[in-house]
Simulated scan of single mutants.
Amino acid sequence: MSRRHRVGGTMTAVQPEKAAGTPSSLGLTFKEAVGRRRSIRYYKPWQPVEREKIQKILEAARLQSCHGNAGHIRKAVVVHREETDEDVFAGLVDALYNQPQASQAPVHIYWTIDMTGWEHLRDNLKGLIDAGALTSSYGWSEQFIDEIVLKTPDFNVMAGERRFAEWLSAIETGMAIGAALLAAQDEGLGTQLLTGKRGQMAELLGIPDTATVAQIQLLGYAAEGTEAGGQRPRPGFDELYFDGRWGNSLHRDPEVVAELIDEGMIQEQAPLPYRRREVRALAAMFGLPD
């Protein structure tokens, strides 16, 4: 599939580059990537994931917005099943409650929240001034950082409540993980987030006490259909979003819904008619209970 770009009100197609012997990315539009994303639970354990695709996923996460430009808080350990000591990988799978997909997926990404990342806050803010992102017209200067920002708990999370710092750090890390999920989809990979025994994972991977494992992202080529049974059910639009005041449901325009269906963001809801047969076939292939 070609990547589509809107230029001067028209849609043009640009064919994605493809390295010799390497499966190309899908080249999805943003809306298609959102619409096609699924939690994949069956992977081809025999098909490795190209390192360049992993790098692209990590680059997408690195570039996401972060409070105070404090990108050092969100770090990750990439584990390749075939390159990891068997006992270590078995311990990681055990820490993930021995879920079958954890054994199948060729790559795990252990996303962490490293609270020492906030120690770079002054330098990060100064870097934004140097880059022209924080400007003097809004009052930003090194003096303002030293005398106001770093001394005000509402600005400086390390000077504020620990609970607030952890909450904000989780949000910032979550944004990076969300971008990584969509980047994996764009690269034609299956992906899913898991959780498990964080202490056991940290010990096996040498993660310091300052960092906490947040989520584990599986990567691999899907053994199930990429529809994975259909788009997952979600709460109603009017249950989530309010107009002007909490409780006043925001209107959902059916014409916008129709447009998003056409553009691939909103897709057919699960379960698709063949899903039960697909799951039975996958269970037989992997020797799992039906």
Rank of each mutant, 00 (worst) to 15 (best):
L205R: 07
D186G: 00
G91H: 08
A281I: 09
K126C: 15
G230Y: 12
L205E: 10
A60K: 11
H5T: 06
A184M: 02
E278F: 06
A159V: 04
A184P: 00
A20H: 09
G68F: 06
G139T: 04
P235C: 08
S249N: 06
A159T: 07
I129G: 11
D130P: 03
A228N: 07
G190Y: 06
T10F: 12
K44F: 13
V157G: 00
S25N: 14
A95S: 11
A61R: 07
L189T: 06
P153T: 05
T112H: 00
L204K: 04
V7W: 12
M11S: 11
R277T: 12
T29S: 10
V213P: 01
S24W: 12
V107G: 01
T12S: 14
T212F: 01
R41G: 01
G264T: 13
T195M: 10
F89T: 02
S249T: 08
I177A: 09
G247M: 07
E203P: 01
L181H: 03
Q104T: 02
A284L: 12
R277Q: 13
I171C: 04
L28D: 03
Q104C: 00
I145R: 02
E161C: 03
R280D: 15
A95P: 11
G229R: 01
Q104A: 02
I113C: 00
H108E: 10
Q104I: 02
P273D: 09
Q185C: 00
G21I: 08
P235V: 10
S39I: 10
P233G: 05
E239D: 13
L282T: 03
K44E: 15
V34K: 04
T116C: 00
T226Q: 07
E161N: 10
E255L: 11
V157N: 01
G220A: 04
